[in-house]
Amino acid sequence: MTAAQADLLIDRPSVTDGAVLWRIAKESGSLDLNSSYSYLLWCRDFAGTSAVARTDDGEPVGFVTGYVRPADPRTLLVWQVAVDAAYRGRGLAAALLDGLTARLAAERPITAVETTITPGNTASERLFTSYAARHGARVSRRVLFGTGLFPDGPHDPEVLYRIGPLSLPHTR
C-alpha cells in the first residue's frame, strides 16, 4: 500500500454501502450502470468476493465487485472496479484488486482472474495488464460477447481478459 493509500481501509462491502457504490459507478463515466437495487444485492450476496476502500470515517471511496465462477471455482470474475473522482490517481484500483485477490487466496485456491473490457477502455486495460505483470501471470484476450448479442441497442463488444495462472499463496 502506498502512502497515498495509507489512510484508507480495504474491507468487505455491506448492504449500507450499496447506494454509495451505485453513485461511484454512476459518476465513473465509463461503467455500464446497473440498477441501484443490484448494488444492494451485490453488497449482500457477493460481499465475500468484493472489496471496498473506506476513509477513516468509514465512507466508501472505491470498490471492486466480483464472484467466483460456479463452473470454474478457481477463477475470480471481476465485474466492476470504480474509484471516486477525488481519490483517482493514487493506485487505489490496483490496491483494491490486489487486496481482494489476496483475501480470496487465503480462503480458497484462486489461479485466475477474469474480467471483460470494452475496446478503448485504456484505464481498465492498464489496471489488469499491470495486475498480471505484478503477479507474473499471462494475459489472454478474446471477444466474449460480440455486439450482436446485446438486445438493448449498440454496445461495444466485451473482450474477456483471462489472467493466469496466478501463484497467489493459499493459506487455508
Rank of each mutant, 00 (worst) to 15 (best):
V52K: 01
E114F: 00
R103E: 10
P70M: 11
S28H: 01
A51G: 06
K26W: 06
P119S: 09
A133R: 14
D156E: 14
V143Y: 00
V143N: 07
P109S: 14
Y67L: 07
S36K: 11
L9V: 13
S140G: 13
Y37G: 15
G136E: 09
L92H: 04
T75A: 10
F150V: 01
D72G: 01
L76V: 13
L144Q: 10
A25R: 11
G48N: 13
G18D: 13
R90L: 11
T129H: 01
V15Y: 10
G62S: 12
V81R: 05
A53P: 04
A3V: 10
V83K: 00
R138C: 13
A25L: 07
P165E: 12
V64C: 15
V159H: 00
V61E: 05
S28T: 06
L127M: 09
D72C: 09
G120V: 14
A137I: 10
G29P: 08
A95R: 06
F145S: 13
V61Q: 06
A93Q: 04
T116D: 06
L100W: 00
G99K: 06
A102S: 12
A132F: 12
G29S: 08
W79Y: 03
D45T: 08
A51M: 08
S35D: 15
A137N: 11
Q80M: 02
A94L: 02
P60H: 03
A112S: 09
I110A: 00
A53F: 02
P119G: 12
S36Y: 03
L40G: 11
T129Q: 03
P151C: 06
F145W: 13
A53H: 00
K26H: 14
I110Y: 03
S50K: 14
G62K: 13
L97W: 04
T65D: 09
R54G: 06
L41Y: 15
L160Y: 04
R74H: 08
T75H: 04
A132V: 03
V83T: 11
E59S: 05
F150M: 06
T101E: 08
V64S: 11
D84M: 04
A25M: 08
V83W: 00
Y39P: 05
G29F: 02
D98W: 03
M1S: 14
E158G: 11
A47M: 07
P73G: 07
V78M: 04
P154H: 14
V20W: 01
H155M: 07
R44K: 15
G148L: 11
